[in-house]
Each structure stands twice: as structure tokens, then as C-alpha cells.
Design a protein around this nucleic acid. Structure first.
Length: 249
DNA sequence: AAGGTCTTCAACCGCAAAGGC
DNA sequence: TGCCTTTGCGGTTGAAGACCT
């Protein structure tokens, strides 16, 4: 797969964007829409590579970008989502309206990373929080799954049980224990229970399962009758302490 | 005031998935 | 089926400002 030279082309501008470049890019996209990043610079008259234009637009120039400090609520959500998803910044950003993956990544690497280090958490817990290790996936099967804690087929099988009323809280907890492989039941049981309860309350079908766990940014629970916003996401975050990724295997 | 160090964050790099031909 | 291009993602870098001595 040949890689194009892109930004290494001679005569291309690099580094910080000027106000004029911003203006050109913004007005071009307003007139012609996003996409075709490769050819955009040439058509817009910018001496930038397409990648650079895309990044500038997505991370800085988009009209819906929310600038300014991360609020306390947002910070808490970032921490919990990171614990849940790992370094899947685009997925995390997708749950924080107006925030970009780059912004969240930077925020994590600076503010939150430092806070966690300085917290009272035991060293091994800090390590898990700072460097969560989602399930290893076979080479070449990298996905943008929201979580690899449970695979779609397992979820689907479980969903069948749920819809048939074959699962009670204990079963659910056992199922999660099996999936998570945790030996620390006292720490995790409440979180698992919350997850089970919320999980049972959702209308699941095959499409939703696949979309939810494999669809990346394009997946949208609203399409399946669930409201997906910061509040509704709380079903994943209600627990005092979400089981750390290190326990998910 | 000057120089050194730290922090922040925009931008770049490299890789891989997706899709077209 | 395989090649190529486009797009998107996460990791990393480095410039600039803030802070410290």
C-alpha cells in the first residue's frame, strides 16, 4: 500500500496556521462542504496538505467546537469513559459534544494524567487507569469497538437470554465475572450489577449490538430507540468505580 | 531582568481500515 | 482479487507562553 508523500511535499506550508489560511479554509468548506481532503488544498488555493487541512478544520475551525475549559462534569465523564474505553479518544470525544479527540487526548495527557498520578490511588490502580489494556485483538483485526470486553456474539447470546427472561441478577453477574475474569468481586460487584440492570433495560437487537460495539463514531443508539447523550450514557457510568480495564479479559 | 524549566496544545507522523477500480 | 487512494485514528513532537529561581 503505497503511502503518498503528503506533507513532505516541497513548497507546502507547515507549522502554525495563519489567520488568512484559516479564513480561506473556512470559507471554502462553507461553500463546498467537507471531504475530498486530498484535493481540497489545491482547489482552495492553500499550500497545505489535505491531512493538515482536515485536522485544522476538525480540531479548530469547525463552528460547533466548544472552546474553553473542560468542566467538572466533562472531566468526570472523560475519566470514566477512559476507564471504560481506553485511549479511544475519538469515541470519548464523540460523547462530549463540541470537544475534539485531540483536545481530550491533550487534556488527559496533561491535566488528568497528572491528577491521577498525584491521587491517593494505589500505584497498581493508577497504572491501570493511566494505561488501560483493552483485550488484545488478533493482528489485522484492529477495530474501533467501543469496548472489547465482550464480543458481539456473546452479547447477542446474552441478549437472547435477557429477552426470554432467562437471566437474573445473579446470572448476569456470573456472566460478567466470566467475561471480565475478575478476582476482586467486592470491588466490582456493584459496578457489574449496575451494568446488568442498565443493560437489561435497553432494547437490544442484532443491529444495535453490532452497531454499538463495532460501529465507531457512526454508530448511534438513537437509531435504535435509545437516547444517547451525556445523561443516558450514565447507565455505563453510574457505578462508583467502573471495573478497571486490567480486569477485563 | 535573564535564563532555565515546566506546561499546554496545535500540528505532524505513521499506521491501518474502508472503499473504489 | 489485489492495488491504490482516501480518510480516520492514536502517538508523539515542538513552539510558545507561564512559571520559577
Amino acid at each position: 500500500m503505497g503511502r503518498s508523500p503528503c506533507c513532505s511535499k516541497q513548497g507546502m506550508n507547515r507549522g502554525a496556521w495563519t489567520a488568512l489560511e484559516d479564513k480561506i479554509l473556512t470559507s471554502y468548506i462553507k461553500a463546498h462542504g467537507e471531504g475530498k481532503w486530498r484535493s481540497l488544498p489545491k482547489r482552495a488555493g492553500l499550500k497545505r496538505c489535505g491531512k493538515s487541512c482536515r485536522l485544522r478544520w476538525l480540531n479548530y475551525l469547525r463552528p460547533d467546537i466548544k472552546r474553553g475549559n473542560i468542566s467538572g462534569d466533562e472531566e468526570e465523564l472523560i475519566v470514566r469513559l477512559h476507564n471504560l474505553l481506553g485511549n479511544r479518544w475519538s469515541l470519548i470525544a464523540g460523547r462530549l459534544p463540541g470537544r475534539t479527540d485531540n483536545e481530550i487526548k491533550n487534556y488527559w495527557n496533561t491535566t488528568l494524567g497528572r491528577k491521577l498520578k498525584e491521587s491517593q490511588l494505589p500505584p497498581d490502580h493508577q497504572k491501570k487507569l493511566l494505561h488501560p489494556q483493552p483485550n488484545p485483538e488478533p493482528k489485522g483485526e484492529k477495530s474501533t469497538n467501543a469496548s472489547s470486553a465482550t464480543n458481539p456474539s456473546e452479547l447477542q447470546a446474552h441478549q437472547t437470554q435477557l429477552t426470554n427472561g432467562q437471566v437474573n441478577a445473579g446470572d448476569c453477574n456470573n456472566n460478567l465475572n466470566n467475561n471480565y475474569g475478575s478476582n476482586d468481586e467486592d470491588d466490582d460487584i456493584e459496578a457489574k450489577s449496575g451494568f446488568c440492570n442498565a443493560f437489561q433495560s435497553l432494547p437490544l437487537d442484532e443491529a444495535m449490538i453490532n452497531a454499538t460495539w463495532t460501529g465507531g463514531n457512526d454508530c448511534d443508539l438513537e437509531d435504535y430507540g435509545a437516547t444517547l447523550d451525556l445523561d443516558s450514557l450514565a447507565f455505563l457510568l453510574d457505578s462508583e468505580e467502573w471495573p478497571s480495564q486490567g480486569n477485563i479479559s
